[in-house]
């Protein structure tokens, strides 16, 4: 092989291997880190997987927020006006968390059907609100209006 060809072959190999590896890894990482979104009625209907990282969004039911007076544990109910799911969370709720407002939580569903959240996002929180959640919240609002 003349040096010219060798060089070209080398460069092409680099690119193919590098890009291939990166694409493979990206697909792997994506498959591991896509958080599917469920709404409370889907969870009530048992459609959501247990002990898998998912997102749940809906409206916080008025009067359902229960704070443990001695710790930062808190529970509240989320609804899309069709189903309700109880969320347990320990820590500080975002500034925009209110009863009757739309929120999104991230975490795992336990075997008792309680959603153990490790993250609670309120609308226009520091973490952005993805469109699917906006839509879920809107749907919930619509459902509220229609009922």
């Amino acid at each position: 092989m003349n040096p010219k060809r060798k060089q070209r072959l080398l460069a092409v190999t680099f690119i193919v291997v590098g890009v291939g590896a990166a694409v493979g890894l990206a697909l792997f990482a994506l498959s591991q880190n896509i958080n599917l979104f469920f709404n409370p009625s889907q969870i009530a209907a048992g459609e959501a997987p247990v002990d898998q990282r998912i997102r749940v969004g809906g409206m916080v039911v008025e009067g359902s927020v229960n704070r443990d007076p001695n710790s930062l544990a808190v529970t509240f109910n989320l609804t899309d006006y069709n189903g309700v799911v109880t969320v347990a969370y320990t820590g500080i709720l975002p500034d925009l968390f209110r009863e009757g407002q739309g929120v999104v939580t991230q975490g795992r569903l336990d075997t008792q059907g309680i959603f153990q959240a490790d993250e609670v996002l309120a609308k226009h929180d520091e973490n952005y609100m993805p469109p699917e959640i906006q839509r879920a919240v809107d749907k919930a609002k619509q459902a509220e209006a229609t009922n």
Binding site: A29, L30, N33, I34, N35, L36, F37, P130, A136
Partner: peptide, 10 residues
């Protein structure tokens, strides 16, 4: 037709 988000871990 899917509603997903890609998290920071990716």
């Amino acid at each position: 037709g899917y509603e997903v988000s890609v998290g920071a871990p990716y």
